[in-house]
Amino acid sequence: MSSAFGALRRRLLTPPVSETTMEVRGFHVKNAEAKTRLEYIGEVFLRGYAYAVEAGSPAEAEELLETVPRDMRGFAYEGAGMGAAVYDSLPGHGGRLDGLLAGRGRDHDYMIYVGVGWAMARLPKFLWPDISATDPLLRWLALDGYGFHQAYFKTNAYVRTPEIQHPFRWNGGHNHYTLNAVDQGIGRALWFVGGTDPDVVTSLIRAYPERRHSDLYAGAGLACAYAGGVTEDELARFVEGAGEHRWALAQGSAFATEARVKAGTVIDHTHLAARVVCGTTAERASQVCRDTRPQALTGGASPAYETWRRDIAAELASLSLISKGADQ
């Protein structure tokens, strides 16, 4: 059971839910249903954050996280990733992030690493978690989380002035690639900024320099598949709008599908997004992610994470060609 000190930590460290409302953020509202869904996602994220900060142990945090409805549980674990990293940064505290990943959180590790990036955006750099001690492949998702946070909370700087690309350096290696990973997070946030409206999101992406479009579409693809809030026709329009970046969009959606399959949180929308965006079944999209996951994680001009992303996109494109050939 959490202590009085844990409750105090929660009150002092947890951001207010009002920060995630569409009105406060100034995001596009497509319709009432999409607005309600996006705001509920924000609420669940903050609930997971509070659980990780308040709980007396990682096991207690896990018990609380497992009470969240299955379809939303990944967002709670994402918030818990942020909360655990913030908790570990406090004097005399530690082990919360490791404990979270060692338990049921291991099935939500994609989301937890994204949450760590949120903490990096809020903490002074000297309090950042030791990223060099984390998973060398999935640690790049922390930069995705950082990019999402910045676009979500600093929208004027990161979205409304798309010609500016803000510098970033970390100790995770391959610093030349860091802005690509940050852009993937910005792209994911654009799904929220655009209120799940594919036309608005496409317009937002096109405002950025062309060299950034592939990473932005990959992030938006992850969000459209994981967060949902969109119809089949809207997804098809989003795919069409992506043009030459169609398979970057599919790669992000495949990541989202694998994250839900691994965690056992597959919903109807997962199957829809896999079919429309990835051009295959949810099971096959997830399997592509697992089959292409690199074994060698050192060496090379680009991180293994980027090689993995490219291999997923190429394999999905290949499957699409095979499928089209079979239909002719």
Rank of each mutant, 00 (worst) to 15 (best):
G79S: 06
L297N: 12
E23C: 02
E62V: 03
S320Q: 09
R169D: 02
Y40N: 09
Q328W: 06
V68A: 07
H93W: 08
G300C: 03
Y226I: 07
E315K: 12
D135N: 14
L64G: 09
A34V: 09
E62Y: 08
D291F: 03
Q184K: 08
A223R: 07
A7I: 01
D311F: 00
G187D: 10
E66S: 05
L46M: 04
H174G: 05
E23N: 14
F255Q: 11
T270F: 03
F255D: 05
A259F: 13
N180F: 15
Q165Y: 03
A225V: 02
L141E: 07
I41H: 13
A50N: 06
P15R: 13
D135A: 09
E66H: 10
H213W: 14
L38V: 01
L12F: 11
A142M: 15
G300Y: 02
Q287C: 07
E33R: 13
V159F: 04
N156H: 11
Q328F: 09
M72D: 11
S89C: 06
F5P: 00
V182Y: 11
D311V: 00
P15N: 11
S3V: 02
A227Q: 03
F238H: 11
L101V: 10
K125R: 15
E234L: 05
G252C: 06
Y208G: 01
A85E: 01
W128V: 02
Y51W: 08
F75L: 06
D88N: 08
W128L: 02
P162T: 04
D130A: 15
V201Y: 10
P136F: 08
H149N: 03
W140I: 00
Y152L: 01
T178N: 12
A274L: 10
D233H: 12
D135L: 04
Q150E: 10
N171P: 00
E315H: 08
L222V: 07
D183A: 14
W118R: 04
A218T: 06
L64M: 14
Y152I: 00
W140D: 04
L8K: 14
G83N: 02
A250V: 02
D215F: 10
G195Y: 10
A4H: 09
H245V: 01
T257W: 09
R275E: 10
P58F: 13
G325A: 15
A313L: 03
H108R: 02
G241F: 08
A85N: 01
E234Y: 05
W191T: 07
L235T: 03
R290F: 07
A119G: 05
F45E: 01
R246M: 04
G194L: 04
G147C: 05
Q295H: 13
R25K: 14
N156Q: 11
V182A: 09
R139W: 02
R237H: 13
I186Y: 06
G99W: 07
R169F: 04
G105Q: 09
A250D: 02
M120F: 05
T281E: 10
L143W: 03
R96G: 00
A119L: 04
A218M: 14
E163R: 10
E19W: 15
T265W: 10
W247Q: 11
I41G: 06
Y87G: 01
L141M: 13
R290S: 08
D144Q: 06
G229F: 04
K324F: 05
H269F: 05
A225H: 04
G145R: 07
A274Q: 11
L179V: 09
R188V: 00
S89Q: 07
S320R: 12
D311R: 10
E210L: 05
D107I: 00
M22R: 15
